[in-house]
């Protein structure tokens, strides 16, 4: 503090110095007021449409609520007890994990492969990139309609291709039987979401310095050795982030599965988000649905926290 030290001769007198300091803190305080003012709309909206609903979702899960009348009775933790002892929760969780792991691994494999291909100097590269990117941006509704038409058992082109290639003798029911339905859903999911991996990996590939490849080439490494020794270690960081992010998004996917199979045949492709919807709006058990949603969020929390820690360490 200037007062304790005391100004040497020739310096501005302490009065003015203190005034400057006060002006400084005043300005700082005005700045943080302005900062708060600018963030106020965000905070208001967040509280109204996210924080409050989030808390009331937890609160709702402690009631038994009939959806059409919205009348509820307090049941405490009964919903959770019932849910955890019911087979449906565990089978849906299993289905959810199969879907997530299946579609995610295909997305990563195809995504990285495609990124490596598009990183090369192929003809009309930007056109190829746009075509690859497109499935990611179209609406899930469009994707589902198109695939339902491709999958159509009588007039679908897919059955025609498979039959003329001699792979199958009779038309296949892609969505109505198991395990076909699960495989189809996983494949369509991979088709729709692998472009995300392509773009992310491609951006990283472009930032790998050429010297690394030169050095590996001088050391006599072939293309495959170069991939494992240079490319893959460089991609590791970004792949971890992509896998976490896609795992979170695939785990909570609703539209694609709901529209393609509706969870069917019977409940073979019914993942947790679909159970939440079913409990709330078909079985009219709003409280039970909230319990399912909360449990689902708790499971996802692991991945969410991992991802958040990751971005935090990266940021600092």
């Amino acid at each position: 503090m200037p007062k304790q030290v005391g100004p040497p001769d020739g310096q501005p007198d302490p009065e003015r110095h203190i005034m400057a300091m006060q002006k400084q803190t005043l300005l700082e305080r005005r700045y943080s007021m302005l900062g708060l003012l600018l963030i106020a709309p965000t905070v208001l909206v967040f509280c109204a449409v996210i924080v409050y609903p989030l808390i009331s979702a937890i609160y709702l899960s402690l009631f038994k609520i009939f959806t059409p009348t919205l009348e509820g009775t307090w049941v405490g933790l009964d919903n959770y007890r019932e849910l955890l002892t019911k087979g449906e929760f565990w089978t849906s969780l299993r289905t959810n994990l199969i879907w997530t792991v299946g579609t995610l691994s295909l997305q990563i494999i195809f995504g990285v492969g495609m990124a490596l291909v598009l990183h090369q100097n192929i003809w009309f590269r930007s056109l190829a990139r746009s075509l690859i990117l497109f499935p990611y941006f179209i609406s899930t509704v469009v994707a589902v309609l198109v695939w339902k038409w491709l999958f159509n058992d009588l007039y679908g082109i897919l059955n025609h291709f498979m039959m003329s290639a001699g792979l199958i003798e009779f038309p296949i029911d892609y969505l109505g039987t198991m395990p076909n339905a699960m495989i189809s859903v996983i494949l369509v999911g991979a088709w729709k979401y692998f472009p995300f991996v392509v773009i992310a990996v491609l951006a990283r590939l472009q930032s790998i310095p050429d010297q690394l490849y030169e050095a590996a080439r001088i050391d006599g490494a072939g293309p495959i050795a170069r991939f494992f020794d240079v490319t893959l270690p460089q991609l590791r960081e970004v792949l971890v982030v992509i896998i976490l992010l896609r795992a979170i998004w695939d785990f909570k996917e609703f539209d694609l599965i709901f529209l393609l199979t509706g969870g069917g045949p019977v409940t073979s492709t019914q993942t947790l988000p679909l159970v939440v919807y079913k409990e709330a709006f078909s079985l009219n058990q709003m409280g039970m649905a909230a319990a399912y949603a909360v449990i689902m969020m708790l499971i996802m929390l692991v991945f969410m926290l991992l991802y958040m820690r990751r971005t935090r360490t990266e940021g600092s």
Binding site: V49, I50, Y52, L54, A57, A290, V294, M297, M304
Partner: peptide, 21 residues
């Protein structure tokens, strides 16, 4: 932190209370 958290939050959690609201 909250922004990032809600960025990852599944919408089926929010949809029930939002519907009621």
């Amino acid at each position: 932190f909250l922004v990032l958290f809600t960025y990852l939050l599944p919408s089926v959690v929010l949809i029930l209370p939002l519907y009621l609201m």
